[in-house]
Simulated scan of single mutants.
Amino acid sequence: MSDRFIILSGCSGGGKSTLLEALHRRGHAVVEEPGRRIVQQELAAGGTALPWLDLAAFARRAVEMALADRAAMKDHSGLVFFDRGLIDAASALQVAGGEPVLATLAETHRYNRQVFLTPPWPEIYEGDPERRHGFEAALAEYQRLERTYPLLGYETVILPKAPVEARADFVLARL
Rank of each mutant, 00 (worst) to 15 (best):
E123Y: 02
A96S: 02
A166F: 08
A173W: 07
R110K: 14
T18Y: 04
R113D: 15
Y142D: 12
L93T: 04
A45N: 07
L159M: 12
L19Y: 11
W52S: 04
G153H: 13
E141R: 00
P119N: 03
P34K: 01
V39K: 05
A90T: 11
D128G: 10
G27A: 08
L43Y: 08
T118Y: 05
S12K: 10
V31R: 04
A72G: 14
I6M: 08
V39P: 11
R60A: 15
I87W: 02
Q143M: 09
S9G: 10
V101Y: 03
L86K: 06
A66D: 03
V39A: 11
D169E: 05
G13I: 05
M73Y: 07
V101Q: 13
V157N: 01
N112K: 04
A137N: 07
Y111F: 12
G14I: 13
V30Y: 00
L151K: 15
Y111D: 08
G78F: 01
L172I: 03
M65W: 09
E136I: 03
R147Y: 02
E165C: 09
H24L: 01
E126Y: 01
E99K: 04
A62Q: 04
E107I: 05
S2Y: 14
T148N: 06
I7P: 02
R110P: 13
A162Y: 02
D3L: 12
H24V: 00
Y142K: 13
H24P: 02
R167W: 05
E165T: 06
E21I: 10
L175K: 12
N112L: 10
G14Q: 05
D88S: 11
L86A: 12
